[in-house]
Computed example of a mutant assay.
Amino acid sequence: MHELIVSPFLGNHLVVRPGSPKGLKVPKHRYLELQQAAEADGAIPGWLHKPVLRQWGLDLRGQNARPALLVRDTVSHEYGRASYEVNMACNWECPHCYLGLKEDTGMEWSDRELLLYLLRDAGVLWLQLTGGEPTIDRQFPAVYSLAYELGMMIEVLTNGSRLHNPLLLSLLTERRPYRLTLSLYGATEESYDRLTQRRGAWKAFRRGVDAALEAGLPVELSVIVTRDNEHEIDAMYDLARSLDVRTREYNNMTPTYFGSGETLSAQALTRGGQRGVFTGCDAGHTSLHVDPLGMASICKVARDKQLPLLTEGLDGLSKLGGIADQALLRQGGCSGCQLSEQCSTCMPLAQRYRQANAPLGSYCQHTPKEVTTA
């Protein structure tokens, strides 16, 4: 099993290690040297030994390039990152979930296998596996294993409820993700079970996060702040500190990806509304999203124009850039707004808010008097 991945990445060449967010940048001629060593199963070049030992404490002296190095080929497309929605099913029923109705949908293994090869050949090095709850999918272990074998650095977004399962824990320990991001929905059993609408959810989460940390897996917490748990904000951060893990906070409730607004009632009263200025993103150009049925879109939010990736193949990805450029143009109530360069919400998300008939203040940080048109 490979210790390091050597890969082109958006015009650069990286050396990365499964289970670690760190990396090394190498010039093209060094990448080609590593590629030749792997093809010939020769010795790992000496110049790589010291930086790898310094970065990861890994001693490569005396090792051949195979199987220690997995060297990925140069590709014609440069989609360095992707998210793959393994399923839309979930064992929780959180009222704020942007998926809305969570259906148990997904492809047969042969189609999932083809999808992962297509993502690899599109240049995807960093892959996020999400859902729904991806770990309840019966094919999650196979999907995860193949993505790992193809040389992808994997992040799993999960509620953590299945991480105590010995088979799953063994998979993640032997083939380490660079990040496990667990959603935190409360600091007590009462609030956690109430928000997820599942009795026993808190206990399952605690078993999962404790098992993952005991196994030394790279855990981070997404602190989800809603109307139901905002009274426990400080306690949730106290819990994260006691676990000694990094956190990110999510407190802006959004409509579902198809524009229904039932999720907005979960908005916390004391949190939310503060977003940084939207300065653009790489969606559709160097990153993409794929849903459970293999439909590719520029991101998780903008699914108005999707491509059947399995039938259109890599050639179809060339259309995503144009779709992205069109989707990000100011339109509807925002077209002509003189404050658009200060806006904090991307247009695809603003469109979802409009479809949900949400109040202007939920997605526009400007007061009505400030909003002017040319």
Rank of each mutant, 00 (worst) to 15 (best):
G333M: 10
L328G: 07
G332P: 02
L314Q: 03
D325Y: 09
G321E: 06
L317Q: 04
R354H: 03
C343V: 09
D315R: 13
T311K: 12
L314F: 03
A327E: 11
L317E: 02
A350H: 10
L310T: 01
G332M: 12
D325M: 10
R352Q: 14
P348I: 08
R352N: 04
R354F: 00
D315F: 04
A356K: 02
C346H: 03
P308C: 12
Q342G: 15
Q338H: 12
G321T: 11
C334F: 04
N357S: 15
C337F: 03
D315P: 01
L314T: 05
Y353N: 03
L314D: 00
P308D: 11
G336K: 09
A350V: 04
L310E: 01
G321D: 06
L329D: 04
R354P: 00
I323F: 13
Q326S: 13
E341C: 11
Q326N: 11
P308F: 05
Q355N: 07
E341R: 13
N357M: 07
E312F: 05
L329P: 00
L310V: 00
Q355W: 07
Q326V: 09
Q338E: 14
I323E: 05
L339M: 11
C346F: 07
A324P: 07
G322Y: 01
C337R: 10
E312P: 00
Q326H: 11
Q338P: 03
L309K: 02
S340M: 06
D315M: 05
Q351L: 14
Q331L: 02
P308E: 08
N357I: 06
L329M: 08
S344D: 14
Q338S: 15
Q351S: 10
C346R: 07
T311N: 03
M347T: 10
L310R: 04
R330Q: 13
R330N: 09
A324L: 09
E341Y: 08
G322C: 04
A327F: 05
Q331R: 15
S340E: 09
A327I: 05
Q326E: 15
Q338L: 14
Q342M: 12
L328D: 10
Q338V: 15
C334H: 08
A324E: 07
I323N: 02
Q326M: 09
I323R: 04
G321S: 10
G313V: 06
G322K: 09
L309V: 07
A350D: 03
S344Y: 01
Q342L: 14
T345W: 00
S335T: 12
L314G: 03
D325R: 14
L349R: 09
L329A: 07
L329F: 04
A350Q: 07
E312Y: 05
G332V: 04
P308T: 10
G321N: 06
Q351Y: 01
E341W: 08
T345V: 13
M347H: 06
A350M: 05
